[in-house]
Computed example of a mutant assay.
Amino acid sequence: MDVRKLAACVLVAATAGCTVVPGSNMNRMNSVWFDDTPEEYTPAETDIQYIPINATVLAHLNQQAQKQPLSNAELEAAISSYHYKIGLGDILTITVWEHPELTIPSGSFRGAEESGNEVKADGSVFYPYAGTLYVLGLTTSEVKDLVTERLSSVIKRPQVDVRVASFKSQRVYVSGAVKQPGIAPVTNVPLTLVDAIDQRGGLDEDAAWGDVRLTRNGHTRNISLRSLYEQGAWSENILLQHGDQIHVPRNDADKIFVLGEVNRPQGLPMSRTGTTLAEALASANGINESKADGRGIYVLRNTGISRDENNNPIYTATIYHLNAASAVGFMLADKFALTPRDIVYVSPAPITRWNRFLSQLLPSIVATDRIGDIQNNN
């Protein structure tokens, strides 16, 4: 067969089957010119859910995002029943009214902390006439009752007051993207997650406030301060304990990737208040009107990994499809909230895919034409 005829046959075959046209296209993600995959290779299982973006889907997603309760009955109950437990190194001030000689030695001009009673390594303090008192793990009210009972044998109806002059035994650790990383002391005032971050100057501008990590007794949980601050979901706020570790990561990884037929494909940092699909497209200088297919705007979202009965991984993903051929589509895009690591892809128009195919095919036609000329000359 003549080489030119062979090239023409290839051209006709390519025209009849647009799925072999090279270039990115969501409708043919699995089509390739040839397959060089090793025979022993087993592709990972995938579970992809396809969801069109419409008013019904947006209403459902918004309802899911706002389903957290606004109140926090568990936190309120924990705060109302909170009592500080005395620890090692704390300094107590024990006052017996009408008996100043028991409180501050004569001729001394020391402050409450300097003149107080430090809880020793064995958990005890010493007080005149009361002797050695084991106070570790007790509340100030319980220590008051203990001192009153001991002094009753030497003082008639003693009036006792016990306070913690210096809280040194308990603390939480705040690290990461906060103004002043460091230690927040646990005192007789209940300390919540929000309080601890505020004590350290608040969040930095580059804080990933949707993924704050709290580690307690070796277990870590993720807490979203975004839903707390934006929606008043106080269920995300908790009462802290001694030894808790709070880490606020940076938002460097909280990016959105805008690819395909946009004027400036790029990775965008996630906005502090959230980013919508319309905002992401606008940040990429909009779609390329001469090349893009407005009917094919996709959001690819990785939703995690599950396991089958043989413990093999199954990668799950959701693909949201927006038809923005009309202005209504962009109105929907403005209501569709993106999440970190989402991939926004704008499909090329059919003519764009065809032109790209021709740009790759023409060099081959030219080469075959030259081969034909050589054969004719011979």
Rank of each mutant, 00 (worst) to 15 (best):
Y320H: 08
D35F: 02
P100E: 01
D369K: 06
Q199K: 11
R370K: 10
S326C: 03
E98P: 01
D90W: 09
I246D: 04
L277K: 05
L102G: 01
V125W: 03
A130D: 01
G329W: 02
L151C: 05
Y127L: 04
L58T: 06
L138C: 06
I155K: 03
A55N: 13
Y84D: 09
P38E: 05
I287P: 09
D122M: 08
P128Y: 07
Q64G: 03
R301V: 09
A284G: 09
L228W: 02
S80P: 01
T276P: 02
A349V: 01
I297S: 02
N117K: 13
T148L: 04
V212W: 03
H247A: 04
A184D: 03
I287L: 10
E40S: 15
R264C: 04
W33S: 14
S24H: 04
Y173H: 12
Y129K: 06
I371A: 15
H219E: 12
T103W: 00
D211Q: 13
E45G: 07
I351D: 10
E236A: 13
G329S: 10
L338A: 13
E309Y: 05
D244H: 09
S283Y: 05
V189G: 06
Q266F: 03
V10G: 02
L214R: 08
D47S: 15
G372L: 12
D206W: 01
A207R: 01
V125Q: 05
A327C: 00
Y298I: 10
D254P: 01
K291E: 13
L193V: 08
V119E: 07
P350M: 03
G176D: 11
P350E: 06
S124E: 07
V189C: 02
T103D: 00
T368L: 15
N30E: 15
L281N: 06
A208P: 00
T95G: 00
K67P: 01
R307N: 02
S326H: 10
H321W: 12
H60A: 14
I91M: 06
P105K: 11
T103I: 06
E205T: 06
Q64D: 10
V10R: 08
E98N: 14
G123Q: 13
T140A: 04
N54K: 09
A333D: 06
N376Y: 11
K144W: 01
Y173M: 08
N251C: 02
N376K: 15
Y41K: 14
L240D: 04
D252G: 03
S141H: 03
P38Q: 11
L136P: 04
D195P: 03
T220D: 14
G107I: 11
G232A: 14
E98M: 03
E76D: 15
C9Y: 14
A207W: 01
K179H: 06
G87W: 10
L11T: 10
I183T: 15
A65E: 05
M270W: 01
G182F: 03
W234V: 08
Y50M: 14
I297K: 07
K144H: 09
